[in-house]
């Protein structure tokens, strides 16, 4: 279990994290979401004790940070994080050792994980000889090999092909089933929606939305219209009764104003596009995200931060 209370961090003139609090329980997948530069990575770095917070506390299974706690945390950094010239197996065994694992045990586990990711053949290859996706897998092994109780993954899906995304997702579920606390950050809302039990949306260093995915969506009510169609749907964003429209090539998600009825909507669309699916649904996280974040950021786009 990980509990973050009123975490603060300032850099020079910018308040990167401003009073962030959340709690991720055991056996829970927790999504830390937000646009680029929202303060996700800074928050994660403070949780990992890489950065010292200017204020607030973090507890790990009820305890404060200590050298002992380090061995129970697993971490996947946002990008790279491997020695390019070193061999796969050596690298994994080294990182496992730094988390307190014995070398023999680390080697056995490393081989098991390499097998699971079909990388056994590469055990003595150099990291730089691997594809980006395979490097990401090695990085992932390094984060979980020592059986940590808290796993923190910064943008774990970037650079992964769909097949490997499924492999990762399976392991997410296994970790959850084993009672681990899994915290991952992403700016891809569909992933957060599918994967997380609980989430926390950060924007400009503040928590703007939090709770279980169910709660969050329920809060926004069932006033979204999901339409699939063929034809040019550009006109939909200007339809009367539509507060906001998310347009894709062959689908649209329309947030309706109170009072707008399905009948009037169908009537307005009829003849202009060929409708293949028409459904009244809860809004997607993507739509909620844009509702919550979009307007406030449109005026001043956030600075890009690592």
């Amino acid at each position: 279990m990980l509990k973050v209370t009123d975490l603060r961090k300032e850099f020079a003139a910018v308040v990167a994290v401003d009073g962030v609090s959340f709690e991720a329980g055991n056996g829970e997948v927790f999504g830390l979401i937000g646009p680029n530069g929202a303060g996700k990575t800074t928050t994660i770095r403070m949780i990992l004790n890489i950065l010292v917070p200017d204020g607030g506390t973090v507890t790990y299974d009820g305890r404060g940070f200590s050298d002992e706690v380090r061995n129970h945390i697993g971490y996947l950094p946002e990008e790279r994080g491997l020695y390019r010239k070193s061999k796969l197996l050596d690298t994994i065994v080294y990182f496992a050792g730094l988390r307190g694992m014995k070398r023999a045990a680390a080697k056995t586990e490393a081989l098991r994980w390499l097998g699971r990711f079909s990388l056994e053949a590469y055990r003595d290859r150099k990291v730089e000889e691997l594809s980006k996706g395979n490097q990401q897998k090695v990085q992932f092994i390094c984060a979980i090999i020592h059986d940590p109780s808290i796993v923190i993954l910064d943008e774990p899906f970037s650079g992964l092909d769909p097949v490997n995304q499924i492999v990762f997702k399976d392991i997410f579920h296994e970790l959850r089933a084993a009672g681990k606390t899994v915290i991952f950050s992403t700016h891809q809302m569909d992933q957060a929606e599918k994967l997380s039990d609980t989430l926390c949306l950060i924007n400009r260093g503040r928590v703007v939305l939090g709770g279980t995915v169910r709660d969050v969506k329920r809060r926004y009510g069932t006033n979204s219209l999901h339409v699939e169609f063929s034809g040019d749907g550009a006109f939909m964003s200007a339809l009367p009764g539509v507060r906001r429209a998310l347009l894709y090539a062959n689908a649209a998600e329309l947030e309706l104003e109170t009072g707008a009825t399905i009948q009037t909507m169908i009537g307005a669309m009829n003849g202009r596009i060929a409708i293949t699916k028409f459904e009244l649904v809860e809004p997607s996280l993507q739509s909620i995200f844009i509702q919550t974040v979009g307007d406030s950021n449109a005026a001043a786009p956030p600075a890009e931060a690592a």
Binding site: N49, I50, R70, Y75, P77, R80, G81, L82, R84
Partner: peptide
């Protein structure tokens, strides 16, 4: 330099002091 540019250092510093 490599550890810094590859962010390996984040893994290292979170693993040990």
């Amino acid at each position: 330099l490599e550890e810094k540019s590859n962010r390996i250092v984040e893994v290292l510093v979170s693993s040990c002091s």
